[in-house]
Measured scan of single mutants.
Amino acid sequence: HNGKLCKLKGIAPLQLGKCNITGWLLGNPECDSLLPARSWSYIVETPNSENGACYPGDLIDYEELREQLSSVSSLERFEIFPKESSWPNHTFNGVTVSCSHRGKSSFYRNLLWLTKKGDSYPKLTNSYVNNKGKEVLVLWGVHHPSSSDEQQSLYSNGNAYVSVASSNYNRRFTPEIAARPKVRDQHGRMNYYWTLLEPGDTIIFEATGNLIAPWYAFALSRGFESGIITSNASMHECNTKCQTPQGAINSNLPFQNIHPVTIGECPKYVRSTKLRMVTGLRNIPSIQYRGLFGAIAGFIEGGWTGMIDGWYGYHHQNEQGSGYAADQKSTQNAINGITNKVNSVIEKMNTQFTAVGKEFNNLEKRMENLNKKVDDGFLDIWTYNAELLVLLENERTLDFHDLNVKNLYEKVKSQLKNNAKEIGNGCFEFYHKCDNECMESVRNGTYDYPKYSEESKLNREKIDGVKLESMGVYQILAIYSTVASSLVLLVSLGAISFWMCSNGSLQCRICI
């Protein structure tokens, strides 16, 4: 991952900044910058967002509201009850120091605090018919004063009620008058409520006091790749198909172990950190130390980045220098085999997901714990399936590479015959000098055995068991695999060879 928040398929997220979902939807004055928000790819909250409900109280069923919003990608904020005409018999300019803005008392931008007009609070009834052709999110509140005197001074009615009804919602609220500790300079409380109004449905408000009335509502448009994440990451000019709280993932790998919460087309989250597919040879310690064997393909974004291909070729060293050249036929066979294998694994496992966190309130801790156990169970199954699949494929890959290298080895052996000696570690020792032209003939299969047989015969008789390297004779190393990324691999195959001279070296080696 890149540690950044990015656009998702070209669409920017909605960053709530210092506000949370509650503050944004109710219209906390400190969240005025969010009022123009219309569309987004996903919503970003920060872990310690401080601006929620400015007048103390709870947004009821907040967790369910977050779940609903996680599939919303755009909205239209509109005046559901026009301020100047909807409440002619009531005062609608209630403000509070708890919702101060720029040093002055204020109130929510989407709600109206209705109080008595003169000395009376006549029963009010108002309704709205949803003609938007889509779901409408309606929010309101109920004020709970701290004393009967406060109730009387604001609403005149000691036994007030609030009723809200639609086809799918029907509740009646009565204020709970009680002494409470002071929070944000208030002994009173406000509880906030919401409902989704279906197209064509009607919502009716009736009250004799204590109503925090809707002013603006939201017509919602769903987008199934949307979601809500909690993150401290910063926004950058970048684009992605998959976003996590820790950063964007741009990967076609089937798995990731970065974060379980994802938005967009994302690899499946697994616990494993070692889900690797081999593309090189079986481990040979001396070669492995030099980083030549054991190439791997990573299938977990965050564990290993991208696929690494092994390729086969020849390396030689003689009086004229040293050089490398790919054996294109065996390399292409290996590439085709690995590509098919990788595609097979991805096809089997690479279903892209959006995974969002589930919200539970403080009273639902047991449910949250149960949900976590269920999620953990599914996660263990996914991890096991992934590891088992790759384990089985790896064994076949190792066998496949062994065969490829063996074929190259036999190709060289059949040409050199007794003009060189096998020394048991995949290397041959020449009994004759071999210049670049000679080396090329070994690589392309045109090695002239009779041409060098007499010199080889004489050297075999002279050496008589002495280690060949100390006599200045020449080696050919018969097994060799270097490691390159897919891009470098293609470039390498396009070149005939490249040279690395070893000044004054008397050794001649050709490596497979």
Rank of each mutant, 00 (worst) to 15 (best):
G337L: 13
T482E: 12
A233K: 15
A420I: 01
M277L: 14
S231L: 02
A248Q: 14
C508V: 12
K274W: 01
Q415W: 01
K406N: 12
Y269V: 01
C438P: 06
M367A: 08
L281S: 00
V261P: 00
V345T: 02
G494H: 00
K451N: 09
H432E: 05
H315N: 01
N283F: 07
S492Y: 01
K241W: 00
N418H: 07
E395W: 07
V261C: 01
S502W: 02
N336V: 08
K433Q: 07
T305K: 00
G303N: 13
V488A: 08
K341F: 00
N252L: 15
Q415H: 08
E422S: 11
M500W: 08
F255T: 08
L458V: 14
I496F: 11
W382H: 11
R276H: 10
L391W: 11
N250R: 11
D327R: 04
W304R: 10
S344P: 01
T446K: 08
S470K: 12
I463T: 03
D376L: 07
P450E: 14
N362A: 13
K372I: 06
S502T: 11
V483S: 03
M367W: 14
F378Q: 04
E455M: 09
L506T: 10
S414H: 01
L392V: 02
A484T: 15
H315A: 08
G247L: 03
K451Y: 10
M235S: 10
Q243L: 03
Y289A: 09
S481G: 12
L392C: 03
G323W: 02
N232L: 09
V491S: 13
G323R: 08
F400V: 06
L379I: 14
N257L: 06
N425D: 11
A478G: 12
E319N: 06
I287M: 15
L493Q: 06
E265P: 00
E429F: 05
V270Y: 01
S492Q: 06
T354N: 15
C511W: 11
K341C: 02
C434S: 11
N444E: 13
S485D: 15
A420N: 02
K372D: 10
N404G: 03
G302N: 09
N333L: 15
G377H: 06
D402V: 07
K372F: 03
H236P: 00
K406L: 10
N362G: 06
T240V: 13
L477G: 00
N436D: 07
P245W: 07
Q507W: 05
E422P: 13
P245L: 02
Q328S: 02
N239V: 12
Q352G: 15
K329C: 05
A248C: 03
Q320A: 11
E410A: 09
A495H: 04
V405W: 05
I300D: 08
N444H: 06
A495G: 07
T397K: 03
Y384H: 10
G494R: 00
E359F: 14
L468E: 01
L253P: 00
I338A: 03
G280M: 08
T331Q: 02
N407L: 00
D399P: 06
C501S: 10
W304Y: 11
S414N: 07
G323S: 13
S231D: 01
S286I: 10
L490F: 02
V270N: 10
F353G: 11
C438I: 09
L403C: 04
Q332G: 03
S502H: 10
S453V: 12
G280R: 14
S234T: 12
K268F: 06
Y431M: 15
N362R: 13
H315C: 13
E454V: 10
N418V: 13
M307Y: 00
V345L: 12
N340P: 01
C238W: 08
D448I: 03
R276S: 12
F255K: 09
P260T: 02
E440H: 15
W311I: 08
I510D: 01
I263D: 10
E461K: 09
F299M: 06
P285R: 10
F378N: 12
M277I: 09
A355E: 11
L389T: 07
D309R: 05
H316R: 03
G426F: 07
L388G: 01
T482Q: 05
I423G: 02
S481Y: 06
N340K: 08
G310K: 05
A297W: 14
N283Y: 06
D399E: 08
P254K: 06
P260F: 07
I258H: 08
F428Q: 06
P245D: 04
D464Q: 14
R290H: 00
M307C: 01
N425E: 06
R460C: 01
E469R: 11
Y447Q: 12
N436G: 05
K241R: 15
T331F: 01
I381G: 03
L416S: 10
E454N: 08
N436H: 11
G424M: 11
D464A: 08
S486A: 15
L281R: 03
V270P: 06
K421T: 04
G445S: 09
V412I: 12
L416C: 07
L389C: 03
T351A: 15
T244V: 05
E364S: 04
M277W: 02
E410V: 05
I300V: 15
L379Q: 14
A484V: 10
L391V: 12
K329Q: 15
E387P: 03
G298N: 10
E437H: 14
L490V: 13
Y474I: 13
T351Y: 08
Y474W: 08
Y431W: 11
C438N: 08
V278I: 06
T339E: 10
L506R: 01
K451P: 02
L389V: 13
I258E: 02
G445Y: 13
K451E: 02
K268N: 09
K329V: 12
V261M: 14
V345K: 02
T273C: 03
L253A: 09
E359L: 11
G302F: 09
E422L: 10
G313R: 01
E410N: 15
T339V: 03
I335Y: 11
S453K: 04
K274P: 00
N283P: 06
T262G: 15
D380K: 05
Q415G: 07
N343I: 04
V390M: 12
V405R: 03
G426D: 07
E301W: 05
